[in-house]
C-alpha cells in the first residue's frame, strides 16, 4: 500500500532547471540497497552536498525557505534518463508529495503514480506563475487531485489533467499489486473458465 493522495496543502520549492535526470535525483551509488528505505538523504546528492560532504548553501533545496517543502516546481522533461524507480522513492522519502513541471519523462511519471507522488503537468506559463508567486512569498498552495486543480489563497487557479489510472491509484492509495487484487473475483472467474 502507498499513502493516498486526495488533496494536499503544502509549501513549494522551485528548482528552475530543465531535463533534471534520474542520475541527479538519485546517483547510482545509492542503488545497491535491497530495501526501499533510506533514499531521502541521498536525494540530489551531488547538488545538495559539496565533495567534502557539507551542505551546499547555493542549492535550492538547502535554502532556509525550502525547509519543509512538500511540492517541487521544476522545468520541462523532469525525470529523464535511467528508469530507476529509486528516483521517486528518494523524492517521496525526502517529503515531496507532488511535482509540478511543464513535462515529465514518461517512465518517471508513471513511477510517480505508483509510489504515492503526484506528477502535475501544467503549461509553462502557469508554472511560471507559480514560480513568481513563490518568489513573492506565496509559497503555500493546494493540490486537489479529486478536482484536478491547483489553488492558493491569492487567487491562483490552474486546472490539470492526471492520467486516469494513475489518479485512481493515488486517490485510493493503491500500488499496482493491490489494484490488481481488487480484480480477484474476475481473475478467479477467468481461471475457472480457462482452467
Amino acid at each position: 500500500m502507498v499513502e493516498s493522495f486526495v488533496r494536499h496543502r503544502g509549501t513549494v520549492v522551485t528548482l528552475l532547471r530543465r531535463d533534471v535526470d534520474t542520475d541527479q535525483i538519485i546517483p547510482k551509488q545509492f542503488l545497491k540497497g535491497v530495501e526501499r528505505t533510506g533514499f531521502g538523504p541521498a536525494l540530489f546528492y551531488d547538488w545538495r552536498y559539496r565533495p567534502d560532504g557539507s551542505l551546499d548553501p547555493a542549492f535550492e533545496l538547502n535554502s532556509p525557505k525550502a525547509r519543509g517543502a512538500t511540492i517541487l516546481v521544476t522545468g520541462p522533461n523532469f525525470g529523464c534518463g535511467s528508469s530507476r524507480e529509486h528516483a521517486v522513492w528518494a523524492l517521496a522519502q525526502y517529503g515531496f508529495r507532488a511535482i509540478i513541471a511543464p513535462s515529465f519523462a514518461d517512465i518517471f511519471a508513471s513511477n510517480c503514480y505508483r509510489n504515492g507522488v503526484l506528477p502535475v503537468r501544467l503549461p509553462a506559463s502557469e508554472v511560471d506563475d507559480l514560480v513568481h508567486g513563490t518568489e513573492a512569498g506565496r509559497r503555500e498552495i493546494e493540490v486537489d487531485l479529486e478536482r484536478q486543480v491547483i489553488t492558493n489563497d491569492h487567487g491562483f487557479e490552474a486546472r490539470f489533467s492526471a492520467d486516469p489510472y494513475g489518479r485512481e491509484l493515488l486517490l485510493r492509495g493503491l500500488d499496482e499489486i493491490s489494484r490488481t487484487l481488487l480484480e480477484e473475483p474476475s481473475i478467479a472467474a477467468y481461471e475457472r473458465r480457462h482452467g
Binding site: D23, P27, Q29, S82
Partner: peptide, 28 residues
C-alpha cells in the same frame, strides 16, 4: 553507469559510446 570502479575522475573527459552523459553519470 560507473557503479563499479570504472569511473571518471573530476574533470576527466571521456569519449563514450553509452547512452547517457548527465552530470556525474560516469563519475562525479
Amino acid at each position: 553507469l560507473g557503479m563499479n570502479d570504472d569511473v571518471l575522475g573530476a574533470g576527466e573527459r571521456c569519449a563514450a559510446t553509452s547512452n547517457r552523459n548527465f552530470e556525474g553519470r560516469q563519475g562525479r
